[in-house]
Design a protein around this nucleic acid. Structure first.
Lengths: 115, 115
DNA sequence: CTGAATCCAATAGGATACTG
DNA sequence: CAGTATCCTATTGGATTCAG
């Protein structure tokens, strides 16, 4: 049996460490639920600071999961939206989300946010 | 709907922060692949230190995902195995694992159409 | 073999204030 | 509105040593 850190699992660990940082899950979920502007994210994620929100958005953008667009209106609008990869991530995260919900005792009848 | 930090998503964030710590994904995967004794985990996870392996196992045990059993043989054996919850987690993590693999360009066992 | 203890460096995150 | 800059503390993780 070879080491599990050969070439396949580092990517998995990397993914976990990316989305395991504080607030990141919430930011991704906010994006999945339609947040686009900075203030929308901030309003949807209770307790997050500007600094961390900015940082998380940058990390997700660097990872190719969120797309930052500058709309030349007046005033300028900046939009953060999930890329195709980001949307695929949201889908891939759903079983884990369900698992978390069941564990925490909440009942999740049937409503699944995205998909 | 309500704020995403109402009562449902904290559990999700908590889960992400638990398995997002360094090595935790590897430890869970090692368990899923049959590791049971401390030394087996250590051998399967290249680069992890005793201290961190011990810490991760404790965290997973505290979360109810891994079960620690002392077998009174000579010398005493200590077994770390996934609980039912832990096994459910492994299953719930599979789509995320697949997503990571596709992203990193690795091939999945079965061919995945690119388009 | 299975850890616990200690020390240290790096990073993460919270609070606050300020800017184009 | 959409961030940046700073400061400061807490947490993390790596390395090494010791022990039952």
């Amino acid at each position: 049996m070879q080491s599990i850190n050969d070439d396949t699992c580092p990517s998995f660990e990397g993914t976990l460490e990316l989305i395991g940082r504080r607030w990141t899950g919430s930011v991704v979920q906010a994006a999945a639920r339609g947040a686009r502007r900075f203030g929308e994210y901030r309003a949807m994620i209770d307790g997050i600071s500007d600094r961390l929100l900015s940082q998380r958005l940058k990390e997700l953008e660097a990872a190719g999961l969120i797309d930052r667009t500058v709309v030349p209106s007046t005033p300028v609008q900046i939009l953060y939206q999930l890329t195709a990869e980001g949307q695929a991530l949201v889908v891939a995260l759903q079983p884990l989300s369900q698992w978390s919900l069941r564990r925490s005792g909440s009942r999740v009848t049937k409503e699944v946010p995205v998909g």
